[in-house]
Design a protein around this nucleic acid. Structure first.
Lengths: 212, 212, 212, 212
DNA sequence: CATGAATGAGTCTTCATTCAT
DNA sequence: TATGAATGAAGACTCATTCAT
């Protein structure tokens, strides 16, 4: 009596635990993105995943754990995409443009990712449990930001004295993009194009003459 | 360890409806700003205002009504402040700068106003009841935005063809400021200064030379 | 300084305590008749009477007391009307007819009286407090019923052995009239006429022939 | 004095949904019969059924749904019993007698059924929610009534011109029986026997002579 | 692995009642 | 006399969580 049948080579039968876990994360990410942590119920997630609420507890020890699993999954994806965008360029200007583009194309491909991360920032502020669980959520984000700015100082695009200003402006822009534009792809494109034009000094022109 | 003495029932001495109503709105605005509509309980508000939950219903017919009272109070303040900032200037550039400054000084004086309006946008998406109740908030905001942009077109600062881009960028910036910087006045100042510098083409410089 | 101005002769100014009390009883009787003790709130009564809820407590020490005041007022009116109807006749048959007629005309003049007494019977069963407070609610009713039946025995219309049956039938009919017909005067008339015809053996005839 | 041990959470051993649902309906029907919709609380029902209030919502989506489940269960039983009684007879007289008998034996077997349906009529008037939810209850009742009367016209027992009177009298009697006698089986029997005697012209006799 | 049946704490809301004015 | 401002207990309902099966 073999204790365990020797694991078959190749893909295991489709409805195993790992698949179910992924399915839960997938549906949960959309629900959390749309509604936020507090409003989505376990029942919502379970129904969308085609299982019972009880079964959720086989995969996650609590609603919080489920949320965290979604959070890290998406945050990692985004961090990787942005990191890659950064590494593809050498100048601050190029990097910012690349990040804006990658933000847009992520938004086009998986609209709920940006929405989720947008609401996650809010949910963290609202639910102390989340705040505690997601320590240094900037974690990776902060690393990327500092790499971007230090690089800009090296290339002379960022004046060291304005470092803090640049950081605050970038944060403002990235957060603003996610929060105000990620639910409409067309508007998101306009915003990205506008920001690129702003960097090129083409978005706004000097006034023709003083108004009366 | 004196537990707070169980407040006597009946009308408390020297109480005044108008005062109490204002007190409720004041504490509720802070709580809603920090926690959002769904998470703040009537009990939270009542305790912060020093009354019982039942008494809330003497002033507002439901939690929703209470929220709306807070919403319109703050929204009106902000609309007025921004409208005034706009009317103080004639150029697009001047107006944007004035709005950024007024945003900062509002934030300095009443930190939770911006926070509240930021979370209100999220809460509207999450709670259909709020969505239904708040129909005109684009109302005033949209009016201001369109006045700003049309003015910019008249002065030649905004190219008509880029109207949508400008609008999207402004939205991004204003939302980003509220959402990402309004909880820290210092960072908020950095962001505003950075944005002003950006408008002056002083925030970012051309790269000295291509990085390796 | 006269302690009390000597009571003026004649009707006192219209809005004094006694008037208010009567007004409360009047509006309360209609509300209780339509909705029942449990559903009518003090606020309902106060608003209908044009005063505040607090003021009710000047006239009645509790909702229960107010209800009882209404109850005894109406019950007395009805008992007197029925008693008079009884005394106007000597035979059982005549008395029953007279009672049916007086029931109908009361219903025509003051529709909510019957409704109130109908719901009062139900409310007594539902609210132990009422049950306790209204001891022997048959009180007068039982006296009338026994007088009616004993009279019937004397005149030979009621066989003593069927005394209980007669009593149960009369109860059934009076309660049924109040409960099932008092909200529609036309139907109430039909029921009264039908019952009178039944007493005359005119309502129902023998079957022409056995149905197939 | 053992306080009942705080029931453990989680699924209790040997529990069965169908059983629990029936148990809830059984205890709820008695409570509603005695106290009415507005006064019976979920807690009352839950305690009587030996579960928590939350568990009620596993079976019924609201208190109203629970009430309706009870209502239709009992109403169906009664309609079937009365329909059967009707079909067992051909004459109007026979049918009325059969219905009176079946009413009595139902009352003997399940005393709270009649009480429930009696209070249901009142509750419908008092709670608009019930009124809306229960549209067809006249439905079956009205069908039976009209079948009874049309049959009586065919057999010649009911004069067509008195149709409305007959209907009103029958309603009065049936409602009166339920409302005034169903809480005491002995009195109920007296009433039924009295009504049967009334149909036989045996209940009341002519007066021997005019009273003084 | 998964469901089904349950708990209990917590939410919004209502209402009789109270008491300073 | 009357109002206005408040309490607090209770009610319907929701939901994360638990556990027998």
């Amino acid at each position: 009596m073999a204790k365990k049948p020797p694991a078959r080579i190749g893909r295991p039968p489709s409805s195993n635990a790992a698949d179910t876990r992924l399915r839960i994360i997938a549906v949960a990410s959309e629900l959390f993105a749309r509604k936020g942590y507090g409003i989505v119920t376990n029942k919502d997630v379970a129904e969308a995943a085609g299982i019972s609420t009880g079964a959720l507890y086989y995969y996650f020890s609590s609603k919080l754990e489920m949320y965290l699993a979604v959070y890290w999954t998406l945050q990692t994806m985004v961090d990787e995409a942005i990191g890659e965008a950064m590494r593809s360029q050498r100048t601050f200007d190029g990097r910012v443009r690349a990040i804006l583009e990658v933000a847009h194309s992520l938004n086009a491909q998986e609209p709920h990712i940006a929405q989720f991360l947008g609401t996650a920032r809010v949910d963290r502020l609202r639910h102390p449990e989340l705040q505690e669980a997601i320590t240094s959520p900037p974690g990776e984000g902060a690393r990327i930001m500092s790499e971007l700015i230090e690089g800009g100082i090296e290339t002379g695009e960022v004046v060291a004295a304005r470092r803090k200003q640049v950081e605050a402006v970038l944060q403002t822009i990235f957060v603003g993009l996610v929060d105000s534009q990620s639910d409409d792809l067309g508007r998101h494109r306009q915003a990205v194009d506008g920001l690129l034009a702003l960097l090129d000094h083409k978005l706004l022109l000097p006034a023709k003459r003083a108004a009366k």
